[in-house]
Each structure stands twice: as C-alpha cells, then as structure tokens.
Design a protein around this nucleic acid. Structure first.
Lengths: 199, 199
DNA sequence: TCGATGTGCAACTCTGGTGTCGCAGTTACA
DNA sequence: TGTAACTGCGACACCAGAGTTGCACATCGA
C-alpha cells in the first residue's frame, strides 16, 4: 500500500509509533468506538498530528486495525491446520485462538473489514470438512460458519461465573469446549451428553 | 414520560407527526444509522425544526424508538403465552413475531435499550420452562436466551435462497422452524433428525 | 368562529471533531 | 558527525450536525 518508488527510508522509531498508535487505538476504541483521534493520540503518548502523519485519515487507521486482525485470523487458521488436521480438533484449536483475538482485539473484531474473504473461506472449508467427516449434518458450510461466529460472540460475552462454564480449571478451555459442543449440536452432529474426543 | 401536570392538550395532528417521525426514523436509520436528523425530517415530510419540537434531542428520538419496540416485544411475549402455553409452541409463536419485528424495526432492534429487563425476563422464563419440560438440557435459562437471540439474528440475515431454508412454502415459517430446531439442538434437547411436533 | 396549538422557513449559534501547516527541537542511522 | 527523518506544539481553516429562535401561516377543535 505504501511501497512507493520514492527512496524514502522509514525510520525504526516511526514504525514503533505506528505500532503504538494501533495498540492505543484498539484499547481506546474498545471502550468507546467513537472516541476522537486525540484520545488515541494521548493513550499512545503522541501528539494528534503524529497520528495523522502515520495514518492519513481516521478511516485509514481503522482499515489498518482491520487488516492487522485479518492477518492474525489467517495465521490462526493456518496454525489450526483447518485444511489438514482432523476437523473437530482443528475447530477446537481455532476456537481457542479466536477467543484470544476477541480479547486482544475487542474493537477490531467488530469491523466487518476484518472478516476478509480469505478468512470466511477458511472457515467454510472447515465446516465442509466437518460435514464430510460426519461431525455435523447441516449441509451448508456457510450456515455452519454463521452459527459458529454468532455463538463465538455469545460465549465470549458469557460472564466468567456462568453455570455453563463450570467444571474446567482453565477458563478459556471451558469456553472453547462449550462453544464447540454447542455448535456441533446446533448443526445436528452431536447427541446431548455425547462427548467428542478431546472435550 | 411526557405526562406533565400541565394542562397542555396535545393536538391530534401533532401525534400523527410524532408517529410519522418514528416511522421515518426507523426507515432512514435502518439504511444509515448515523443519518442526520434532517434526512429523517425529509423522509417524514416535515421540517427539521419540527422533529426537534417533538423530540428534544436525537437521543430522545432513539429512546422513543427503543421504547416502542420494547413494548411490541412484551406484547409478542404475551400473545405467544410464554408463561402458559406448551413451551415449544410458545417459542415457535414468539419466533414468528420476532422475525416480523426484526423486519419492521430493522434499526431499533439493534438498540440495546429495546431489550428491557421485562423482555429479557420473559425470555428467561420461557427457557426455564423449556428446561423443566425436558425440551432442552442446558440448565441456565440466560444461556438459552443468549443463544436464541444470537441465532435469531443469524437466521434473519440468511439469504432467502439458502439451502437451509428449502422445503417450506412459507418463508417465515421455514426460518422459524430452522431457528427453533437449531436452538433446541444447540441446547441439547433435540436429536438430529428428530421432529418436534409442529415443525 | 376564535384561540390555542402546530408547522414551515430561514436564519443563527455552538460544539466537537478532522485534517493541515510551519517551525523549532530531537532522534535515528549511514 | 551531519543529514534526513521524526516529533511536539500550537495554530488554523473547515465542516457537519445539533439545537434554538422568531415570525408568518395553517390547522385543529371546543
């Protein structure tokens, strides 16, 4: 995007500023999505003008946040081996990273631009594999993906003391297990009480 | 809210204006939630100043939209007899009205203020009854309600030509059936392939 | 019919946020 | 060590939208 032909070197501290701005933006906007740039600049310990130097406009900053998150999604999909690992295991692994991203990117997560076609396709392939493996019966991968994302959000919002999370010592694992179980059941794959291996 | 002690009669055409504004606001804001009041006034065929006469501020207008919807939710819950009818049947009926409201109040639906405690309580009672009747196994009504609302949203967004909606002649009924089936399964109540009566 | 109420119009103020600029001082880095 | 890059600061123009006002005209309703 910024790779001009101009021989304009980018200094290391400038890149650090960029990173600090993105970090601060995520933190501030998570609290108030309409927060002015000045608040972000303050949080980053920089002058507002500097924010404008790194990001030509507010929307450019938001785009950068979305792009950053999209990249981590893609990375997570790859690490979970959604295209090769046993699908339920891949789903479980992907879910844990998804929760981590939801926490670290509470704001960016709600930018539609962070759900790039690449990410959506990856999830659709996962649900197609789940279906082919017999783990679910719902035929349409897109529907599976929608249910998954919607419930991902709900499980993430669930208070830590919810009775639905009881049992697990590790809270993140408990959430992931609840989500996977619920989604598989919702898509007609798991009978109530039945345990998929690894849950 | 507006019932002052002042003996200030409210003329019939003024109430009509109020209604037109609410209607126009819903329509305009559904397209663009940040649309200026002027656009709403235009859509209502009124001057912007008149909007300000009926609603002292923008937020007052939004509150009115939310209150209006909340009332219809409550009405829907009552009509579905969530506290007395067989729970699955009540759920099905409530779902159909919920879809209708989602369409007619595309914007207001996303105002958190429209989900009053009264509405939430009603849904929680429904899920408690579903559990007591054995229709689901998930113990926590709040969790049931969350899953329901999240999937309500997804099913509503599902394109009309989705394979998941095939079969029914009536599209709304098909959506309601998909939602109820999915939620009951998700909450561990319905085995895949099994049919609840009336679906 | 008459008075109270509602409305259109056309201003105006006010607020808050965006984006730009120049300049002086600081920091990286070759 | 010198130069290019970066930053802070403070000012500025700009703009969109909210909310207000006064006045002439219309409309309701008892």
């Amino acid at each position: 995007m910024d790779d001009d032909a101009a021989p304009r070197r980018v200094r290391a501290d400038a890149e650090r500023s960029t990173a600090r701005i993105l970090e601060a933006a995520e933190a501030v906007l998570a609290e108030d999505e309409t927060a002015p740039l000045e608040r972000i600049a303050d949080a980053a310990g920089l002058a507002r003008a500097t924010v404008h130097r790194r990001f030509s406009s507010r929307t450019a900053l938001l785009d950068a946040l979305a792009a950053q998150l999209a990249q981590r999604y893609v990375q997570g999909l790859a690490e979970a081996r959604v295209d090769s690992a046993p699908p339920v295991a891949a789903m479980l692994r992907m879910t844990e990273t998804a929760f981590a991203l939801k926490i670290a990117h509470r704001f960016a997560v709600q930018l539609s631009a962070s759900m790039t076609p690449e990410v959506l396709d990856g999830l659709d392939r996962l649900f197609a594999r789940l279906r082919d493996a017999g783990a679910i019966t719902a035929p349409d991968p897109t529907w599976g993906r929608r249910v998954y994302l919607a419930l991902l959000h709900e499980v993430n919002d669930l208070p830590a003391d919810s009775p639905m999370l009881a049992g697990g010592s590790d809270e993140v694992a408990a959430r992931a297990a609840l989500l996977v179980t619920t989604v598989l059941q919702a898509l007609g794959g798991l009978r109530p009480g039945e345990q998929e291996e690894g849950l």
